[in-house]
Design a protein around this nucleic acid. Structure first.
Lengths: 416, 416
DNA sequence: CGAGGGGCATCAGTGACTGAGATCCGGCAG
DNA sequence: CTGCCGGATCTCAGTCACTGATGCCCCTCG
């Protein structure tokens, strides 16, 4: 128990901040519409006067963030000029540093992938790895052919725990030697790009808000199904990071009575009962998968997990049982989170999601509904993300877009 | 799985909203300072120019929300005029509808209780109960001697689940017959006061932000230890309510492997393992408490629980063991929440807290620290609330103050 | 081909914050 | 006791974002 910190009162706001904020509000409205919006529609939606909309539209057009895209005349009168996002108005680079593989993407303003690449995570010391990453980023940008002045920055998604203030990685379980490595500073210097660092699951949630379409709006939990299982949290369109950027640690929620012993001393935590590595081991023990390969790391687990899913897809009852059980267990953990936060939606995603999706979608929605404390008041949607396997890297790039262009309340406040 | 809702884009902001918001920012800064602040200090803290501070101070003085309270001259130069909250500038009425007892308070602007009263919760139909409540409110206001024009409104804290949009109570487990009762409408009509309804645990968290001093700032979880156990969540000084106002349902977090069977089908949930009723039953079974009284309702449980604590205070090892175990179990649930949200503080409170506090404060901090996923990055404070047993009712009144005077981001946005 | 209607731009007008300078207030040196 | 000085606060324009009124523009329809 430490001394209570001196509270930092919320700071005021002023005219320029207000203007910038309204600009982002309008941009978000355009972004969230599939087909673009006219100025009049925007005025209705955001509640500002048409004049203000016109002025801000002009600023956005000047900045080339939006373009006028044709007219739409339904009845009499002057047809509406449709405003649409200009995909080429801004780009961002995203890197996902995973214990097994590093993924790189260049994203345009729409959140579409312009170019991507991967490399196996080198095992050397962090400094060397960071140099490799910086090199690969340069190559990727060149290959993409994107005007460098249009690149707003670099986002980096890393496994937790992290220190958001420092921009550092703090001893993640599967990345030995990465002890308090200030990756933000290092990559910022090496690439010359404005750099943001965040946790992988948080990045995935941001990806959903930016590139995920309708399911990325409002309040939701993004369940990231990777080598580990974590969640990203978005409440009222704003991502929740927590005091130090470590929100979303759900590995020690107990989901399986009498399950395997976890390093925390309890049995049947998410971390010890439903992560892919455990399921693979279980399948090996049950004879569903042949051979026992110990010390399986990232890519190997993914392969073996795919084998397990293949068997299940082919009708192997034991394989199906393992996947079904994992769905049940994960649903219990999700219920804990959704009941704590009363969100309106759960979005599943991550590198393992595509293969497990049929088994999960069949069971999870009903289980969540059954355990939903607010069942009488509202439904709880369950959807799979539209953002694919690279959600970590895409989310990393979205961190940059979100930071620059999302209407966060924080943007209004004077900094101190 | 339902159709995805049409996203409701964030609405813009304008000049008057900005002015109102800055007013609340300044008020909050003054409120959070113990001894009052001068205009110059305010300018530094909130980041606005001294002129703006002066203008807003004048508005606040005109509204009698603050007063000039003496001068403070340390060196040469004109001494600073200290601005302080005017306790009599605004009042709010709070009601906590608990299954066992209804508590009423009148609060001043500082969050201090001006007057309070209680009544046993009548068993009749809701309409009758609501009439009684309205009557008691009238009496309380008269007795308090407060100028009615200074009463900003009425806050009502109720057990969940609730429907925030409707302002209704939706079938709480211990209040039979309260099925979708629109208590907000009913009490608003009956009393003529602006009325807000919220969940008891959320109200308790709001009480902490308003009347709890330093521990009510920043991001924290308020653990409400009542007949049931729930939590209120505050992130970055703003309370989290969830889609329908039902955030904070943690009753089904599994904390005791092989514990008692819960109605959800699992064993050892918070709800089935650590609520007072269960502990009392356990104590009876272990012979710590004599006699077995079944169907114990609210007040009786509290009495019996107090007896259990008396025994423990007197050194009864079995009683101590029961309380210690409950602390361990609750700590597990708290860890789940704090790791999910990465808050900086846990605040314990509620009607049962005072008695359990020594047993909890001895064990919980260490247990939380051990399980803190962000342990390497920051500490997790554990404190008991300064707001006493009436935290529910006080929080209810604070809902009104918070709604009118807290610098919520929501205040900036145009409504639609 | 003209009327009509809706979209959008222009032009002041309002109001909140800002910067410079004036004013006020108390302590301190002479 | 008096004048000087430093700091806090106020006065007075100035800037800028949003708003309301007005008018131009462009398309459809009769």
């Amino acid at each position: 128990m430490t001394e209570i910190r001196q509270p930092t009162p919320r700071r005021g706001t002023n005219l320029p901040r207000m203007g910038d904020f309204n600009l982002t509000v309008i941009l978000e409205a355009i972004r969230r519409s599939t087909l673009g919006l006219s100025r009049v529609e925007l005025a209705q939606i955001v509640g500002l006067s048409p004049q203000t909309i016109s002025n801000i539209s002009r600023r956005l057009l000047d900045q080339q963030l939006i373009v006028e895209a044709g007219k739409e005349g339904s009845g009499p009168g002057k047809p509406r000029t449709i405003l649409r996002l200009n995909p080429a108005g801004m780009y961002a680079v995203g890197v996902h540093l995973d214990p097994a593989v590093i993924t790189f993407v260049v994203l345009d303003l729409l959140g579409d992938v312009v170019r991507h690449s991967r490399m196996a995570t080198p095992g050397g010391d962090p400094a060397g790895v960071i140099t490799s990453i910086a090199g690969q980023i340069k190559v990727l940008i060149e290959e993409s052919g994107v005007d460098e002045s249009k690149i707003a920055g670099l986002g980096v998604a890393v496994p937790g725990p992290i220190d958001l203030d420092e921009g550092s990685v703090v001893e993640p379980p599967l990345l030995t030697r990465w002890n308090r490595v200030r990756i933000r500073e290092a990559l910022s210097e090496a690439t010359g790009l404005e750099t943001l660092v965040d946790k992988d699951v948080t990045s995935a949630a941001v990806a959903e808000t930016w590139a995920g379409g309708a399911s990325g709006a409002g309040s939701f939990v993004f369940m990231y199904m990777g080598t580990g299982i974590g969640c990203g949290i978005v409440l009222n369109d704003e991502v929740v990071r927590g005091t130090s950027g470590n929100a979303g640690e759900i590995g020690h929620i107990v989901v399986e009575p009498g399950g395997p012993l976890c390093d925390c001393g309890l049995h049947g935590c998410v971390k010890s009962s439903c992560i892919p590595q455990v399921l693979v081991a279980e399948a090996e023990a049950a004879g569903v998968l042949d051979g026992h390969r110990e010390g399986a790391d990232g890519p190997e687990v993914q392969e073996r997990y795919a084998e397990l899913c293949d068997k299940a897809d082919a009708g192997d009852q034991k394989a199906i049982a393992i996947l079904d059980k994992s769905a049940t267990l994960v649903a219990r953990a999700v219920s804990v989170v959704t009941n704590t936060l009363d969100v309106e939606r759960v979005v599943f995603g991550g590198p393992f999601w595509a293969r497990m999706s049929p088994y999960f979608m069949e069971r999870v929605p009903a289980l969540l509904d059954k355990n939903n404390a607010a069942r009488m008041i509202h439904d709880l949607e369950v959807v799979g993300t539209g953002v694919g396997e690279d959600v970590g890297a895409i989310g990393a790039a979205c961190l940059v877009l979100e930071h620059m262009l999302a209407p966060r309340a924080q943007r209004l406040l004077l900094e101190g």
